[in-house]
């Protein structure tokens, strides 16, 4: 339900934003430039249970957007990237987690609306919501077979067990852009997100800093 509430909240923000700031901002001579590409350096900060497993993630994102002729304030994007997850060596109680570094590769569809703000409309603020899947790899020492009924089984932990999974992923946040010119912008994007697991959702925040260009 948390996932649905968050998605609903962001949809409401986006639709409200479109009603409040309907003015299109783009130079009409750029209407033929329908493709926009961007890249960013990204930090991932795990929250809650996720932070018991990983200290942080570092990596980058690539964004590819389609810009509709008459809806210059909207972006529908495909986002992908790579985050290397740096493992927590110990739990809060000081015990070894047995976890090694892993990674996340997201594949997201992103939808955002861009408000025009001050400095002659060069600054834009864009609420966004992304949803898709993430390819995750984790490496850890599996201790599950070492104890049975409170007595050691004599089996050693499975060292560096590698697990790959595909999980649903949702991200939402605010993108702040500064237009260098009509086609080039730099941006900072702050987002909250979740990798959805049936029993244990993993929450995180993302901080992106990057550059985009319209073709």
């Amino acid at each position: 339900m948390k996932l649905l509430r968050m998605i609903l909240f962001l949809i409401i923000i986006n639709i409200s934003a479109s009603a409040l700031a309907g003015a299109e901002w783009s130079e009409s001579t750029l209407y033929g430039n329908k493709i926009q590409a961007g890249f960013s350096a990204t930090g991932l900060l795990p929250l809650g249970d996720f932070s018991d497993l990983y200290e942080m993630g570092i990596g980058g994102m690539l964004d590819f957007s389609y810009v509709s002729n008459k809806q210059q304030n909207y972006r529908l994007s495909f986002r992908t990237g790579y985050f290397r997850l740096i493992a927590e060596e110990e739990t809060d109680d000081g015990y070894k987690t047995g976890i090694s570094d892993g990674f996340i590769i997201p594949f997201l569809l992103n939808y955002e609306y861009r408000f025009s703000l001050f400095f002659y409309n060069r600054v834009k603020i864009a609420p966004s919501v992304s949803a898709g899947i993430s390819l995750n790899r984790a490496v850890y020492d599996d201790r599950s077979g070492t104890i049975s009924g409170g007595v050691p089984t004599g089996q050693a932990a499975v060292k560096d067990k590698s697990v790959v999974s595909i999980e649903p992923m949702t991200v939402a946040g605010i993108n702040i852009l500064y237009m260098l010119n009509w086609t080039d912008s730099i941006f900072i994007r702050s987002e909250g997100g979740m990798i959805y697991e049936s029993e244990t959702p993993m929450y995180f925040t993302l901080l992106n800093a990057g550059y985009e260009k319209r073709f």
Partner: peptide, 28 residues
């Protein structure tokens, strides 16, 4: 896109990070 995500959520039965969390806390 959201519908696609919701469908994947519904059919997802793995719990990789949850299993890891249980394992990390499996301190004897």
């Amino acid at each position: 896109g959201l519908f696609f995500s919701a469908i994947i959520s519904a059919v997802s039965c793995s719990d990789m990070y949850g299993d890891m969390l249980d394992n990390a806390k499996n301190q004897f």
